[in-house]
């Protein structure tokens, strides 16, 4: 749920990175953090396990500049992808304005992608949201690996709705900002339409 403050002239929006365990959600945020001018971002907070798996969420606040005299701020969150953290995933989805679904392109993670995508729909429904009504984009990550499924295959399975989708190697940064830019755009367009 966006927050528009006429007094401080700010528009605040929440974007959630969703996807199966180890697909690269945290890596996306880390890269954005690394490549963004410190003036335009706050601290990145990672509530993670000893082994750097996300335990509750990662959080990265970005301020992208002005629109019509309003500062635009985007709060990026990742969910924990591991299946047993479902309760936490539901909490992070609350108040979401846009979603990046990060898929792991490796053939052996195909089932995990589908399961996570279905889980996302269920969790959204529980909050009274409908995926069809929420701005979202898809990222096919880890394209650098040898054992990846063809993009056409991933599209067929995950992108029946034909939303904007991107190939990425988040570990090296490629595709990361394209994905971010696309979701920011969709969120602002949705805001413009009015809720």
């Amino acid at each position: 749920m966006s927050f528009i403050n006429y007094s401080s002239r700010e528009i605040n929006c929440k974007i959630v990175y969703y996807g199966p365990g180890l697909c690269g959600k945290t890596t996306n945020l880390s890269f954005i953090f690394k490549k963004t001018n410190p003036e335009h971002r706050g601290k990145m907070i990672s509530l993670a396990t000893e082994t750097e798996r996300t335990l509750f969420f990662d959080f990265l606040p970005l301020s992208l500049g002005d629109i019509k005299g309003f500062k635009t701020r985007f709060h990026l969150y990742t969910v924990p992808g591991q299946i047993f953290y479902d309760a936490s995933r539901k909490l992070i989805l609350k108040g979401v304005d846009g979603i990046v679904f990060v898929a792991d392109s490796q053939i052996e993670r195909m089932d995990a992608n589908i399961e996570s995508f279905e889980n996302m729909k269920v969790n959204l429904n529980e909050q009274g949201y409908d995926l069809a009504a929420i701005p979202y984009v898809i990222q096919y990550n880890k394209r650098d690996l040898a054992n990846v499924a063809p993009v056409a295959e991933l599209k067929k399975v995950l992108n029946g709705n034909g939303v904007p989708d991107f190939e990425a190697v988040a570990a090296a940064g490629s595709g990361v900002f394209e994905t971010l830019k696309a979701i920011v755009k969709l969120v602002l367009i949705e805001l413009k339409k009015g809720t």
Binding site: S2, Y6, S7, G95, Q127
Partner: peptide, 15 residues
Amino acid sequence: MPTSSLVMFEEEFKQ
């Protein structure tokens, strides 16, 4: 959407 965006005006912010 379950909740609409929260919009706060100057006057409310002051209060």
